[in-house]
């Protein structure tokens, strides 16, 4: 009986509606945390392990020297490298493939690389339109590196002091 009266009084005074509206009013003036993806993106750690890239030296020479340490360390066997002696006598890859379906984005390849050639960029939003699109060839990896060199070198510099 008493409970019934209490409930009725609550309903008539609209107290629940008012406490709800209080939160709405508070959030109305608070800072917004929703990010308007894809126009806006959340900040990403410099250690983020996204899509791979092969880097070049500032003079345009590719960094990779085909030491095959990344291939050896890769726990998913996602990396395939074929190497040769280039005409100028240097050790270079003729093929450098990463199968993104196999890759588990552990970042070991980046850790193993003695010349900072293979890196994982902050790019995470990519898609393939064909099945073989999952194979990142040497050309595609270098393209990613060329397009994002500024970001890559910035994040590497940010992280350098912790290594």
């Amino acid at each position: 009986m008493i409970d019934g009266i209490k409930k009725l009084a609550k309903n008539l005074t609209l107290s629940e509606l008012r406490s709800g509206m209080k939160i709405t009013a508070k959030e109305f003036v608070n800072t917004k945390i929703t990010v308007q993806y894809p126009e806006e993106k959340t900040p990403i750690s410099p250690r983020f392990r996204g899509l791979h890239a092969l880097r070049r030296y500032p003079n345009g020479e590719e960094r990779c020297i085909a030491c095959k340490l990344c291939e050896a360390v890769c726990p998913a066997n996602a990396i395939t490298i074929e190497s040769e002696m280039r005409d100028d006598g240097t050790r270079r890859t003729t093929q450098y493939d990463i199968d993104l379906f196999k890759c588990i984005f552990c970042g070991f390849c980046e850790e193993a690389c003695p010349v900072d050639a293979i890196v994982e960029t902050q790019i995470f939003d990519y898609a393939f339109e064909s099945r073989d699109g999952s194979i990142m060839t040497k050309e595609r990896l270098l393209k990613v590196g060329d397009d994002n060199e500024q970001v890559i070198s910035k994040t590497k510099a940010q992280d350098a002091k912790y290594r």
Binding site: A66, K68, A72, S83, E84, M85, R91, R92
Partner: peptide, 9 residues
């Protein structure tokens, strides 16, 4: 054999 393969391969 220069620069072709690593022994573990």
């Amino acid at each position: 054999f220069r620069y072709e393969l690593r022994s573990w391969q």
